[in-house]
Design a protein around this nucleic acid. Sequence first.
DNA 1: CGTCCCATTGATTGCTTTCAAAACCGGTGG
DNA 2: CCACCGGTTTTGAAAGCAATCAATGGGACG
Lengths: 238, 238
Amino acid sequence: MSLPYRDPCKACLNCDVRRKAVCSALKDDEVGELERVMSFVKLEANQILLEEGEPRRRVYSLTSGMLRLSLALPDGRRQITGFLMPGDFLGLADDDTYSQTAEAVIPSGLCSFSVRDMDQLMERFPHLKDRLHLMTRAALRQARETQMILGRLAPSEKVASFLLIMSNRAAAHGLPESPVHLPMTRTDIADYLGLTIETVSRTFTKLKTQGLIHLPDPHSVEIADKARLATVAGITLH
Amino acid sequence: MSLPYRDPCKACLNCDVRRKAVCSALKDDEVGELERVMSFVKLEANQILLEEGEPRRRVYSLTSGMLRLSLALPDGRRQITGFLMPGDFLGLADDDTYSQTAEAVIPSGLCSFSVRDMDQLMERFPHLKDRLHLMTRAALRQARETQMILGRLAPSEKVASFLLIMSNRAAAHGLPESPVHLPMTRTDIADYLGLTIETVSRTFTKLKTQGLIHLPDPHSVEIADKARLATVAGITLH
DNA sequence: CGTCCCATTGATTGCTTTCAAAACCGGTGG
DNA sequence: CCACCGGTTTTGAAAGCAATCAATGGGACG
């Protein structure tokens, strides 16, 4: 499965996501407490971290790479409920068991905590608890935005929204707004937007033909006309 | 708009949702503190309680009736993100501003609190805060289930799932599993499931023809064959 | 009894899905 | 260096199904 180990070089204080992740709730002199109970996990591309229905024993903070969260139907259909980016927390929604599956989209690194340790730390550092609650609320708002995208947007609007959202998130992580790097496959995008891979692919082609985007390669999207892309998206971005 | 007043007769201790709502986190001798800062609001059918984008000054606990939460697009399209039933809390997801609109489906009653008062009470009674966090996590799981319904289920599956979910929720509130009472209009159901009203109506008719449900009137659905309905839903219920 | 709103039913259109095939890309091995 | 192979993406053709447009039915209310 995964390879838990403690990385002595990458101290929390120098971590890339020190100011974005849960640990931003802790002061520099407090974060050592977190580090003490933490282990570090590396995942290869497509490696499963945890599965829907398993007991929730550990929670994670993503430091690098990307994860996909998904729900599956008995017949194999899949809905991706979200993509996690560095700084995002895994395990916000669950109590006793994981409610969804988490897999790596690309090689990824995570801080791992036992639920028991995390609960103890939350009692000691109320800010930590508040921060997790804040992140849960943000996740809920995001899930509802996604409900709108899934329920009421046409395919082109879905894809356009997706590109703008990914572009915004990239910017929030200090990466360029464009070109957007989409590490996931067309199947992932389809399963996220409630479409088929063919429709996703055709929509990319259409947006390209209309001059709204360029596609140097399937995983890179250069946003050529953000204003018009936003019009196509039909959704006002936060 | 709404009619805030304090109802002297309906003490919290005798409230219908005393054991289901937020206040279940408080002991009988603590709940008076909640009551002291509470006001009671009554809404008529279709009355708007609060709108997307407004500053979040108050939060609510629904005691009777039903609310719909929705997001709107500039062009008028609407996505209903959920229906609130007695005991549910309103304002879980938001920080500074409401992220969605809340309207009464039918005449409804709510306990109303200023955010400031509620924050103070949460500091005094940590269980209250924990309870709200718990409810937020449940809302997040529910939103993700809904993502699956919206993204990956066919219309009949959507409607069947909707009926089973409403039936389950009714049961959880001490009401009969069947017949299910659906106070909302076909338009509401369509905007919740990402369909048109015609498709919703046709699907009800189809399920009726197949003998899975009876429709004594448009707002009452008797589940005639729960097992087969669950098969059509294609989704395993919690 | 007439009006309004909502739900249902009908007919047609259009778009996404489905089914199928071709193109592309990186890696491997001859 | 080139041929081959698996996986992914793109493109093509056809079919199916929900959306759309339109009309009818039904219940509540004045």
